[in-house]
């Protein structure tokens, strides 16, 4: 388990990163925290000619509020997400999910941008981005663009970030006073890839749900929003009856992948159980 040989470059700026990528003839990959890239190299799952370290690029760091949006730099470490007061206030769902990401030491070095670009369907933050309707700011030599989370996660380990492009930051609409959210996952051991995970964000006024977003992880090649379930929740009273209907609706929303350890019927069952628990928690908090 030793990585194949490659050359290593450090990019002080975005422009340098693009130039280095260009010079590498497309056989280069970017390195942020390295916690997805380095093990994949050790396993020889990929063999790039060049690694371009983008950790020092200034645009990639920092968390700040900008015009009703929380801007989170792509190099932000999971541990910073967990501890940051702005995240806790403006994106509580993200803060709730952070402790579920792997283990403490991984969270010290792993970055949210690297995590999102790795696009592991069992990972927590991609599902959270879907539920938060975040926008991904992608930099390319020709300029920056923003991609909504729903268009960012294209397929298994595949994102809208084209080769050579760099995820610079994510922009999260800040939570309102009536925003309620919940996150949990069911895994066999703490920090494991979850058998199922769910992020819920709703607006709750006088017991009635508005703008429901429900996103699941570990249900297929990408994290999924569940439109049928959300339609049930929209404008409904948060009650046991609503929760049961929302659980039912998941059958049409989800078509989990084949996996001998967690067959599709079990995955769907666990999705229903977890959704019921999270909505029940929101209902209890409300009462």
């Amino acid at each position: 388990m030793k990585a194949p040989a490659f050359t290593f470059e450090r990019a002080p700026t975005l422009g340098d990163a693009f130039d280095l990528f260009e010079a590498g003839g497309g056989e280069a990959i970017y390195l942020a925290g390295g916690h997805s890239v380095v093990p994949s190299l050790a396993l020889r799952l990929q063999a790039p000619e060049t690694l371009i370290d983008i950790a020092a690029i200034p645009e990639l760091s920092g968390i700040r509020e900008e015009a009703g949006m929380l801007r989170i730099g792509a190099m932000t470490r999971h541990a910073e997400i967990l501890a940051d007061p702005l995240v806790a206030t403006h994106a509580p769902l993200l803060a709730m999910a952070a402790p579920h990401v792997a283990h403490p030491a991984i969270r010290n070095r792993g970055t949210i941008g690297g995590n999102l670009c790795h696009a592991d369907p069992a990972s927590e933050f991609p599902a959270v981005m879907l539920a938060l309707e975040a926008e991904m700011e992608i930099a390319a030599p020709e300029g920056h663009r923003r991609v909504p989370a729903r268009d960012f996660f294209v397929d298994l380990y595949e994102t809208a970030c084209a080769p050579g492009e760099i995820l610079v930051a994510l922009h999260v609409p800040v939570a309102g006073p009536a925003t309620r959210c919940a996150f949990d996952e069911i895994s066999r051991r703490r920090g494991d890839y979850a058998m199922i995970g769910c992020a819920v964000q709703i607006t709750l006024e006088a017991g009635r749900i508005a703008d429901p977003r429900v996103a699941f992880l570990s249900v297929g090649a990408t994290p999924r929003r569940v439109p049928g379930c959300e339609a049930v929740l929209h404008d409904a009273l948060l009650s046991a009856a609503t929760i049961a209907k929302a659980q039912d609706a998941l059958g049409a929303d989800l078509d989990p992948m084949d996996d001998p350890n967690v067959p599709p019927a079990m995955r769907l069952h666990l999705a229903r159980v977890l959704l019921g628990r999270l909505l029940g928690q929101l209902e209890n908090d409300h009462v």
């Binding site: 388990m1 380095v38 093990p39 792997a102």
Partner: peptide, 22 residues
Amino acid sequence: MGTCGACLVMMDGAPAHACLVL
């Protein structure tokens, strides 16, 4: 591959997997 914790060192004051860092 970052799953066992035997290689943890302090990196800038916080534990990090020395196997996951070049």
